[in-house]
Write a protein that binds this DNA or RNA. Structure first.
Lengths: 189, 189
DNA sequence: GACGGACTAGAACGAACGCTCTATCCAGAA
DNA sequence: TTCTGGATAGAGCGTTCGTTCTAGTCCGTC
């Protein structure tokens, strides 16, 4: 067995939660998808479903951050870099059959009123991604305030465009958003 | 009884689905919240939960469209108008205790793979809102292609910023997005 | 070879799910 | 008054939910 049972559970949970949300994903379904048993799930995650979800969100967070980092560093110009993010998301989303969107949005919305640890994990993810973009803009010469404000909008826009792309089953929203964000970033030079 | 039972069901369903998503909201909870009984719900909506959700989404769609229209017409300058939308959403969201976000996002994400009528209703809503913004930009003198492309990004950005605002429990993401969108719109003059 | 802890396995529980069903109510037509 | 059909009412169906629990397997250590 190459991957540990725990890892397989987290991986399966991350994928399922990303596609179906937190409420729509059952513990038993996670166990089945991970080729594990219910006993194993509760052995590794005594906190139950919520603990599994937190681990899944954290995994999705890290995975998405890596993608974002790579795209941001793929271009010299910061505007082109932001556009590259959007294009990368578009191709990845299309390749997954419009299924694998943002790994936290659905879960974040479903658990809004609960002030559970899941909420915190989602907020941490968003914050982390914003910091990545802000850092990239800072390196490009923007002021600290400009970088922070712009980075927040970049992440929000990508987030929203991804949802729109999934619902309409088209990469156009993401590609549009990329172009417009590039145009916006260019105004700060 | 001032409002009909059917209307109360749709209203309650819209509010609950907006806050908890489709999967997270039960038929019995809708009936209870609407001061109706299970029998009444199935009497007015023989299609069951899905039919109720479609009506709820359509209601939320119309409601949000009215708000959007009002905000778009509140300012002379198109950039200021877009910013007004963001500010209006921010105050409304804060007033609801960060609960009442976009009425379709959560449900749209949860029902992604199902190609049900719900999906269609969500797609229709997004499309309609984009058309509203595009129409406003057209009236401001933008070209048809510019208006359409920009409108898509405006809706996506507002969508994403609303989610971010809910998760972080802060109006900052929406206010930031409003400012940046206004800046972007201004580049088209 | 015996022991012990990490891990696997799945039956079983109470609660909640969407939905079906029968029974009842009541305003207006006959 | 009697009849009729839309509307109301909720018990109960089968299923699935998250969780708990007991039993069993595996394997390094003494």
């Amino acid at each position: 067995m190459q991957t540990s049972t725990r890892d397989r559970i987290v991986l399966a949970a991350a994928r399922l939660v990303q596609r179906q949300g937190y409420v729509g994903t059952g513990i038993k379904q996670i166990a089945k998808e991970a080729d594990a048993t219910l006993g194993s799930v509760y052995h590794f995650f005594p906190g139950g479903k919520e603990a599994v979800a937190v681990a899944a969100i954290r995994h999705g967070d890290a995975e998405f951050a890596a993608i974002l980092r790579e795209a941001l560093d793929s271009e010299e110009d910061p505007a082109a870099a932001v556009d590259a993010c959007a294009r990368l998301l578009a191709t990845a989303l299309k390749a997954s059959g419009w299924r694998d969107g943002c790994p936290v949005t659905a879960t974040a919305l479903e658990t809004l009123g609960t002030d559970s640890e899941i909420q915190q994990a989602c907020a941490d993810a968003l914050r982390g991604w914003q910091d990545l973009v802000a850092g990239r803009l800072l390196r490009a010469g923007l002021s600290r305030t400009d970088a922070r404000e712009l980075a927040g909008t970049v992440i929000s826009t990508l987030e929203g465009a991804e949802v729109t792309a999934q619902v309409t089953q088209s990469e156009a929203p993401l590609l549009q958003a990329g172009r417009q964000l590039a145009r916006l970033v260019a105004t700060y030079h």
